[in-house]
């Protein structure tokens, strides 16, 4: 699997990405009384041919990040640079050209395909918007090629989505994402609606397509073991921010942020032998509302290490001071004032 090298130019650079949804009050005179801070300052890089996994629990903002990457939502602030160019400022023809290169695979293969359209029309629809990719006469053939690429029978082109199973529908969604030959695919929980036995088939397909077309993936999921399997690097999100990021081994074997540690320790391991000698960190309470996040470190209300400083100072996402001059896997970005290495996965 290809890896992102820091020396290379990233294909996507995200800096200070923010999305606030206004909360309004009043019917006649609407006034803003606050904002849901769905995403509140997210930075990451994506390199050519690599997979960046983003994990986090519901409401942490990972899907909002995905929508901003493909321009389905406009950021409140921040930059998304595609090959150096900030796409949040683009409009018209320039925006259209960039959007072609960043495509999305959606979570739910039951609602993301129009039931009244044939598979051929669904996969071919991107060509209506970008006719330069496939001239009218060649479209049917292109769609059949795509069906073949994702492991579906090209003769199914005239069928409707309801004639397919969940796994097959997700393959249709992937074929649609590939139609315009994009360089970046944003996959938002692409297998979480599928059966366990079918998930593996779709993950293998995504892996194979990545090497075949040199794709870069942003892979968003809440299933930590699947993210680890497919990702070169992983970012952990909590309440609108990335709290820790590093290579898969750095995050899974040497986590330094308490939230990552709690998250990893909460994942049930499919091995009954691990039951006795596993330390579990049980967090208290629920995730706070993003409309009113805690001051300072957002995780402090559920953190067993929290001290006064955590309420006052927002910890920056950087290599913590105690690891800065150290070599080794603990020296990766972690937004915690009291970062400490702790192995939680046996």
């Amino acid at each position: 699997m290809p890896h992102g090298e820091p020396g290379r130019e990233p294909i996507l650079q995200v800096r200070g990405l923010v999305k606030h949804y206004p909360l309004t009050q009043g019917v006649v005179v609407r006034k803003q009384v606050g904002a849901v801070k769905a995403v509140d300052g997210v930075d990451f890089d994506l390199y050519q041919g690599e997979t960046l996994g983003i994990v986090g629990e519901s409401g942490c903002g990972k899907s909002t990040v995905a929508k901003m990457l493909v321009n389905l939502e406009r950021p409140t602030a921040g930059e998304i640079r595609y090959k150096g160019e900030d796409i949040t400022r683009l409009s018209g023809r320039a925006l259209k050209a960039v959007r072609r290169n960043i495509q999305m695979v959606f979570q739910d293969p039951y609602t993301s395909l129009n039931p009244r359209m044939t598979v051929g029309d669904i996969i071919g629809e991107p060509y209506e918007i970008h006719p330069e990719v496939a001239p009218k006469g060649s479209r049917r053939q292109k769609v059949q090629e795509l069906l073949d690429v994702v492991g579906l029978n090209p003769e199914y082109i005239n069928r409707y989505p309801h004639q397919f199973s969940g796994g097959q529908r997700q393959r249709i969604g992937i074929a649609r994402g590939l139609a315009l030959r994009p360089e970046v695919i944003v996959a938002d929980e692409p297998v979480s609606a599928l059966d366990v036995s079918v998930q593996a088939q779709v993950i293998n397909l995504l892996d194979q397509l990545q090497s075949q077309f040199d794709l870069s993936y942003v892979f968003i999921a809440h299933d930590l073991s699947i993210v680890r399997h497919i990702s070169d690097r992983v970012g952990v999100m909590y309440l609108g921010r990335i709290v820790e990021t590093g290579t898969d081994a750095e995050i899974y074997e040497h986590p330094t942020h308490p939230y990552t540690q709690a998250l990893l320790s909460a994942v049930p391991v499919p091995d009954p032998e691990a039951r006795e000698h596993r330390e579990r960190i049980i967090l208290s309470g629920d995730v706070p509302s993003p409309a009113n996040p805690p001051s300072g470190c957002r995780f402090r209300t559920r953190c067993w290490k929290a001290r006064e400083r955590c309420a006052l100072e927002v910890p920056a996402l950087a290599v913590p001071a105690e690891f800065r001059y150290a070599e080794g896997p603990a020296a990766h970005d972690s937004a915690c004032h009291f970062a400490e290495e702790k192995q939680v996965v046996p």
């Binding site: 366990v196 036995s197 593996a200 993950i203 892996d207 073991s225 399997h229």
Partner: peptide, 24 residues
């Protein structure tokens, strides 16, 4: 056996996951 084998394991990183063929 197929269900257990299709869970991603650490030592399988970079390899294909085992997948039960077909559908329920």
């Amino acid at each position: 056996r197929g269900l257990l084998a299709s869970i991603p394991r650490l030592d399988q990183k970079g390899q294909d996951l085992y997948a039960i063929k077909g559908l329920p």
